[in-house]
């Protein structure tokens, strides 16, 4: 038996009007939504290496250096300056981020009188060993991040995105 394929006038109008209306609404809203989510879909900026220090200035004791670079913020170029801890581990140069891995305060070297050989974060008394490993029992849960690093002609070049050590 042939099924009843009749569509009532009311159904037909409901389908066509919601269909056409849906297309029109999508045509209006879709560009605006894509416009709004653009930051999610923009490619990450290329990570240029920045000249930060000469290798012969460095010692076994971490010293603070400024990592300065330009950050593209759409209609504005921001001059960013980040503090980086540089030191020698044997012949290796190590560049640790100064951003505490607990909640993002800035760590300092040797400012806790009880632990002069550690990084210290004043916010919640977080501590890190010289190699960046977090001291168990203090708030941070992972080591300080490290910057991508290259030594060219006796100068230390750093990438601008510090990476987790694990």
């Amino acid at each position: 038996m042939e099924k009843n394929h009749n569509v009532s006038r009311r159904q037909f109008l409901t389908y066509t009007l919601t269909g056409v209306g849906g297309f029109m609404a999508a045509g209006v809203v879709m560009p605006m939504v894509r416009f709004a989510v653009d930051p999610l879909l923009q490619a990450d900026a290329a990570d240029d290496m920045v000249d930060v220090a000469a290798v012969d200035e460095l010692t076994e004791v971490p010293q603070a250096y400024d990592l300065e670079y330009e950050q593209d913020q759409g209609w504005h170029i921001e001059q960013v300056s980040e503090t980086v801890w540089l030191f020698l581990e044997g012949d290796e140069v190590v560049a640790l981020s100064s951003v505490c891995t607990h909640l993002g305060c800035t760590v300092n070297w040797g400012t806790d009188p009880d632990n002069p050989e550690q990084f210290f974060c004043p916010c919640h008394l977080g501590r890190f060993e010289r190699d960046g490993n977090n001291v168990p029992g203090t708030p941070p849960t992972e080591p300080l991040h490290r910057y991508p690093l290259e030594v060219r002609d006796g100068r230390v070049f750093l990438g601008t995105n510090a990476q987790p050590q694990i």
Binding site: V28, R34, F35, D38, L41, W75, H76
Partner: peptide, 23 residues
């Protein structure tokens, strides 16, 4: 300082910026 630069950016660099500003 930024008004004109922000309009130029949203129109030429943000996806569909030309359409949304055009609307």
């Amino acid at each position: 300082v930024n008004a004109h630069a922000s309009v130029e950016y949203l129109q030429s660099d943000v996806a569909y910026g030309m359409i949304v500003r055009g609307m």
